[in-house]
Simulated scan of single mutants.
Amino acid sequence: MTVAALAESACTLLKSIENMEQNKLNAVNIEDTYAELKTVKEIAQHIRDLCELYRNRLPIQNIKQTELPRVLKELQLSQALFVTEQQRRQVQELRTIASKLNKIKVKIEAEWKNYVEVRLSPYFDLHEMVKSLPEVRDQASTLNGLRNQLRHDISVLPLTQNELNTFDRCFEQYKQRLSTLEHLHPEVRTFLQKANNGTATVADITDEVLRWCRQGEHAKAFRIQFSY
């Protein structure tokens, strides 16, 4: 074998090794990119399901019409670079997309929290205000259980239609049990609030409050102390 032939063989072998190394690197890049893409897919599917579940309940039109299409364009660009082999490794790009999708998910969760707090707060306040009344004490265990479940639902977003239906049923039961006390006269509300924190005085017992106290056993639920 001549020196020229030997050199040519060495070059051919070197190119083969380089190709093998490049193929190995491509395989690693493809594997890593695929792993990140799976994460993006899972988050995107989760957001899609949430948008469908809450489409008539939460103000998420901007998310559907603006934010998600913007992220989709970034994903399509990443896909184009990968498919055309301009940039096989799309790990960082996909992580950025996943981060943006997670922020969108957090926005939906925040919208849910605001939605339920606005609706539940008046009933939680009412429950606290009337908790010492006989008709409320008689069902304290049930009311407290419903309230605890609803408080849990404020921070934990229902993910399925069944979970959302359970929330609705729980809220409806809670409202129904407090419904007879929902429209108390403002003077009675003021009196109850002061009675609960121990600041009620004789001056707070207006004619309206006195009339209400004479209904059922309401008067037995309170004591007003005189101090000298």
Rank of each mutant, 00 (worst) to 15 (best):
A110E: 15
L81I: 03
Q173E: 14
V156E: 14
N62T: 15
T12R: 13
V28T: 07
D32V: 05
I108Q: 04
W212Y: 13
A98V: 05
E117I: 01
Q45I: 01
R55E: 11
R119C: 03
V3K: 09
D138A: 14
L157D: 01
Q139N: 09
T142Y: 13
A98R: 07
H127V: 02
I43F: 03
L81S: 11
Q61H: 08
D32I: 00
K64N: 10
E31Y: 10
P186F: 00
N114D: 11
A35K: 14
T12H: 05
K194M: 00
I60K: 05
Y123N: 01
T84G: 02
N56D: 10
I154Q: 08
E93M: 05
L58P: 02
V40Q: 01
G198K: 01
A4N: 07
A4H: 02
A110K: 13
C170S: 10
E36Y: 08
D207F: 14
I17K: 11
L58M: 04
T206I: 00
L101P: 01
R169W: 05
T142V: 14
T201P: 01
H46A: 11
P186S: 01
T39A: 11
E187K: 08
N29F: 15
Y115R: 03
R70A: 15
E163R: 03
V116R: 07
Q45P: 01
L157V: 08
F82S: 02
V116Q: 04
C213N: 09
Q173D: 12
N102Q: 13
V106A: 10
V130N: 00
K131M: 06
K38F: 08
E21V: 14
I108F: 01
M1H: 09
L133Q: 00
V71Y: 12
H218S: 02
A140F: 12
H218N: 15
L72Y: 08
H152Q: 11
R147V: 07
T12D: 11
L6A: 10
A27K: 14
N29S: 08
Q215R: 13
C51G: 07
K113E: 10
L126Q: 00
I154C: 09
N23D: 07
Q22K: 11
E18H: 01
T201E: 06
D125E: 13
T33I: 11
Q92A: 12
A7H: 06
E67V: 05
S78R: 09
K38S: 06
V106G: 05
N196D: 00
L14A: 12
V202Q: 11
T206F: 00
V40H: 03
Q225S: 15
L126P: 00
L14M: 12
A140P: 05
C11W: 13
Q86H: 11
E117R: 15
I104H: 04
